[in-house]
Amino acid sequence: MATREEVTKLAALARVRVKETELDTFTSEFDSILAYIGQLEKLDLPQGRRGEKPALRNVMREDGEPHAAGAYTKKLVAQFRAREGDALSVKQIISHE
């Protein structure tokens, strides 16, 4: 059973907020989804398959410059919410006090 506290904790970990008014529905919906995917716990997979890794292959490429320096700078900088020149402005996170 999922609790309101657990959902609130998960939200904090995921950097989102579940509003107080949504918390009960979120918790009960979460419960029914978890009950459904919980069938996996009982699923008995054939021997030797439990730890099977998916088919993987390495993809290599030559080192090199993918594009000329600055080719996209103007377009990317245009999306910033705040900037100084071509630098992105963010809140100070280390205090000097």
Binding site: L10, A11, A14, V18, F26, E29
Partner: peptide
């Protein structure tokens, strides 16, 4: 979207 982000956070925890 928030529901699935929470669910994903849960199953990976």
């Amino acid at each position: 979207t928030r529901r699935r982000v929470l669910l994903g956070t849960f199953v990976l925890s």
